[in-house]
Computed example of a mutant assay.
Amino acid sequence: MRHFEHFPVGSVYELGATRLTSEDIIGYARVYDPMPFHLDPEAARSPFGGLVASGWHTGAVVMGQFVRALLADSACQGSYGMDEVRFLKPVRPGDELRGRATVEEAAPHPRRPHEGTVRFLVEAVDQDGQPVYRMRTRLLFARAAAGTARREAAAAPH
């Protein structure tokens, strides 16, 4: 399990790849972002020259990669939110999104000695290496020493 100490500044994590289909794009849009250019290839011809994924869909795909590759097996305690979200290039059917997370800052929590905060730059490129998405987020993690101390206290005879 990864704790705060496992995220030194400058660390880079590859998050995997996900290919989006027309069905993925339209299915997401029907539920979460029903703009015509996300639902109908004909309606999308005017502004984008074809069907494009919602930026929020792109973000959800990359967030899924981030969680599966890095956060699910960590001592993450939650997020302070996103400091920046950018949709850099339209994502089209057939595009493959490859995510990457880079640790930009890591610091012990100023008031909680058993926790630390980590700021990540989370980015995605398409199959041509063109940037399509960027997010900065700050997450809270338990410190490894805190987990050890809690386990030892729980195991101690009473």
Rank of each mutant, 00 (worst) to 15 (best):
V118W: 08
R143T: 09
M135E: 12
H109N: 15
T148G: 01
P108L: 15
M135Y: 02
L121I: 00
F141N: 05
R112K: 15
A145K: 05
P110M: 02
A145Q: 09
A146G: 11
R150A: 12
V125M: 07
E123Q: 13
T117Y: 01
P110D: 08
V118A: 06
A124P: 08
V132F: 10
L139W: 04
A142D: 14
H109Q: 08
Y133A: 09
D126Y: 08
A142W: 14
V118F: 10
F120L: 03
Q130W: 12
G147M: 03
R111W: 01
D128P: 00
G147C: 07
R143L: 05
F141C: 04
R138V: 11
Q127R: 10
R150W: 02
Q130P: 00
E123R: 14
R143N: 05
P108C: 13
P108A: 15
T117D: 12
M135G: 05
G116A: 06
L139Q: 11
G129F: 09
R119L: 10
R119P: 01
F120M: 03
F120G: 03
V122R: 03
A146Y: 03
A124R: 05
T148M: 05
P108E: 14
E115F: 02
H109W: 09
V118R: 06
F141P: 04
R119C: 05
T137E: 13
G147I: 00
D126L: 07
A149Q: 10
G129Q: 06
R134G: 08
E115N: 13
F141G: 03
V125H: 10
G129S: 06
T137C: 12
A146S: 11
A145S: 12
Y133C: 10
Q130R: 15
V125E: 13
R134V: 12
F141K: 01
Q127C: 02
R111T: 13
R138P: 00
T137I: 07
R143Q: 11
G129Y: 10
R143G: 08
E115D: 13
A124I: 10
R112N: 11
M135I: 05
V118K: 07
L140N: 02
V118C: 09
R150S: 06
A124V: 10
Y133K: 10
R150P: 00
A145I: 01
A145M: 00
Q127E: 13
V122H: 06
T117A: 09
A144V: 01
R143Y: 05
P110L: 09
R136S: 04
R134Y: 10
F141Y: 11
G116C: 08
R150C: 00
H109D: 15
T137S: 15
G116L: 06
Q127F: 03
P108M: 12
A145H: 01
L139C: 02
R143K: 15
F141M: 04
Q127V: 01
